[in-house]
């Protein structure tokens, strides 16, 4: 209510505030209304469209699915909807495997991003001021070129007669080119490389706030740097770890471009399966069902991580 009170006190706003008060609206409601409207239009509405398509059946028409309402032969209006598509997803092991495989790939990539990103973030956070800005810039800079171009650049590095293989061969370290492109390995590289800044930035934001006095105290009390790190720095940076991990994990699960360009034929990810259902089978209803199930599968781990964070916040 404080926002509303502030508004009534400022003279030019008084009339508006009074009118809003009559309508039962406060300034706060108005401020919240904008993001709410945004979510409603760009998240909830598409979600309902998706939900409605997932209950339909694929037909050859434009658009290629059955209408929700149709005239029955006797002229009455009937609703065509079934959960058949969801049953189909459960019965076919392909979808389960694709979900599991996506989660596994995203999880492994997140762990690697954390292992690589943490020291970088730590180093930047501890760096003296002018250098710190430059280092941060170096983390952000790759974003200024197209993501697609950077993935293509990796293809140039990883291919059989690419930069890495040619260098290794000319140095005499290997005789035959290593097969790197079109493997899961390449997918991990692609995901970790692409999403690393999302890991570093929240970690950095968290680690710069770390109180140096705590570290000094720990050291004064005789703890080795190792012990200090594991008992003070790491637990205090947990919110940063959780935030960074979520920012990497969530987009990585649904990733389509990286597995499509860098992955091999057996790299099974849900983004790819979705593409197939939508484009190859022309089965928009099943594709919608896959997307909805995925949404819930992704939301579950986020809620779990969120609850961990909240619990830590309360401690």
């Amino acid at each position: 209510m404080s926002a509303g009170n502030a508004l009534t006190r400022s003279v030019p706003w008084r009339g508006t505030a009074w009118a809003m008060g009559k309508l039962g609206l406060s300034g706060r409601t108005l401020v919240i209304a904008i993001p709410m409207l945004w979510l409603l239009v760009f998240f909830l509405a598409p979600f309902f469209v998706l939900g409605r398509i997932s209950l339909a059946e694929a037909i050859i028409a434009r658009p290629p699915f059955t209408p929700l309402f149709d005239r029955a032969p006797d002229g009455s209006l009937e609703i065509i909807a079934s959960l058949e598509n969801f049953r189909f997803l459960i019965e076919d092991a392909l979808y389960r495997n694709a979900y599991l495989s996506s989660i596994r790939i995203a999880l492994v990539a997140t762990i690697f991003a954390l292992l690589i990103g943490y020291p970088i973030a730590y180093y930047i956070a501890r760096a003296p001021e002018p250098r710190r800005t430059i280092l941060l810039l170096m983390v952000i800079l790759p974003f200024w070129t197209s993501f697609l171009l950077r993935v293509y650049a990796w293809m140039g590095f990883l291919r059989s007669n690419g930069v890495i293989n040619n260098t290794l061969i000319s140095l005499g370290i290997i005789d035959a080119p290593l097969r790197m492109l079109q493997t899961d390995f390449a997918v991990y590289i692609g995901i970790v490389y692409t999403y690393l800044p999302f890991m570093i930035l929240p970690l950095y934001a968290n680690l710069t706030k770390l109180d140096g006095a705590l570290l000094e105290a720990s050291s004064d009390l005789g703890a080795s740097p190792m012990v200090t790190f594991f008992t003070i720095t790491l637990p205090l940076s947990l919110p940063g770890i959780v935030a960074g991990s979520m920012l990497v994990f969530i987009p990585a699960i649904g990733e389509y471009v990286i597995p499509a360009l860098l992955g091999g034929p057996d790299t099974l990810m849900i983004g790819r399966v979705l593409w197939d259902e939508f484009f190859s089978s022309r089965d928009w209803p099943v594709a919608s069902a896959v997307a909805i199930v995925m949404l819930f599968l992704v939301v579950a781990p986020i809620m779990w991580l969120q609850s961990i964070q909240n619990r830590r916040g309360m401690d």
């Binding site: 037909i59 392909l94 034929p265 057996d266 197939d276």
Partner: peptide, 18 residues
């Protein structure tokens, strides 16, 4: 449509081994 779905599903199996 029916054949199409069979074909796509079988093709996914060929391509991914699933």
């Amino acid at each position: 449509s029916r054949t199409d779905r069979t074909v796509t599903r079988l093709w996914t199996r060929v391509r991914t081994g699933q």
